[in-house]
Simulated scan of single mutants.
Amino acid sequence: MMQHSDQTSLTTVNALASELVSPYRPEDVDIFVGAARHEKTLKFIKYALLLDAIDEGWLYEQQGWMFNQLERYREALEAFERARNLGYANDGWLYKQKSYALDQLDRDEEALEACERARRLGYVNEE
């Protein structure tokens, strides 16, 4: 196990300040902040599911969130449904994320139902 003293701290990282910030510029409307990182995370989740070493429901929930971040809402809904079927049916955060995807797909009634379910399950918006 790595001891705290062995860990790399931000003060020892040799990086330029420009490398530590997002390359996003307001004029770059089509550039998606973090898209490459989200795609890498989706690959990790895919392989983690093959390993069967981590809670599949949690992985699908995280996959759904990544799909939301990438504006791939239909895929997000599929992932959330899998997570729900694998034991995350009482997870308010899942329903809040599902509500967001449904809203983006203009499925307003379903989005409202999912949002209400999140509220009933005690989800409190962190924003």
Rank of each mutant, 00 (worst) to 15 (best):
K96D: 07
A79G: 03
A36M: 12
E116H: 11
K96E: 12
F67V: 00
T41Q: 13
E39D: 08
D52K: 14
Y60D: 02
S18F: 06
G64W: 12
R120H: 03
Y24D: 06
S99K: 05
H4A: 11
R120Y: 00
E61T: 02
H38N: 06
S9P: 00
L50K: 08
Q62F: 05
L102A: 06
K96I: 00
N68F: 02
E75Q: 12
D6Y: 09
E81T: 14
M1G: 15
E126S: 14
R25E: 15
L86W: 04
A36Y: 13
M66E: 15
K96Q: 09
E71N: 15
A83Q: 08
L10E: 07
H4S: 11
A36C: 10
L94W: 07
A89G: 10
A83V: 06
D28T: 07
F32G: 05
P26Q: 09
Y88S: 03
Q62C: 07
L102M: 09
E61F: 13
A35K: 15
L105D: 02
R74A: 07
T41H: 07
F67T: 05
F67L: 04
W65Q: 06
R37M: 12
D91M: 13
R119Q: 13
L16K: 11
Y47H: 13
E109R: 12
C115A: 13
H38K: 11
K40H: 08
F80N: 01
S9A: 02
A15S: 10
D30A: 09
E78P: 00
L70T: 11
A76H: 07
A36P: 07
D103N: 03
R37K: 14
N125F: 11
D103T: 04
D106N: 09
T41E: 13
D91A: 08
A83C: 09
L70R: 10
A83D: 06
A79P: 01
S5M: 15
P23T: 09
R82D: 01
Y47K: 15
L59P: 07
F80S: 01
R37Q: 15
G122A: 11
L105W: 03
C115Y: 14
L105H: 02
R25M: 13
L59W: 03
G64I: 08
E109S: 13
L112W: 10
R107D: 03
V33S: 07
A15I: 08
R25G: 06
E39Y: 10
R107T: 01
N68Q: 03
L94A: 04
Y73T: 00
D108Q: 14
Q3F: 05
L86D: 01
E75V: 06
R117C: 07
Q104K: 14
D91I: 10
I54T: 13
S9Q: 05
Y24L: 12
R117S: 05
A79H: 02
Q62W: 04
D55A: 01
S22Y: 04
L86E: 02
E113V: 10
N14L: 14
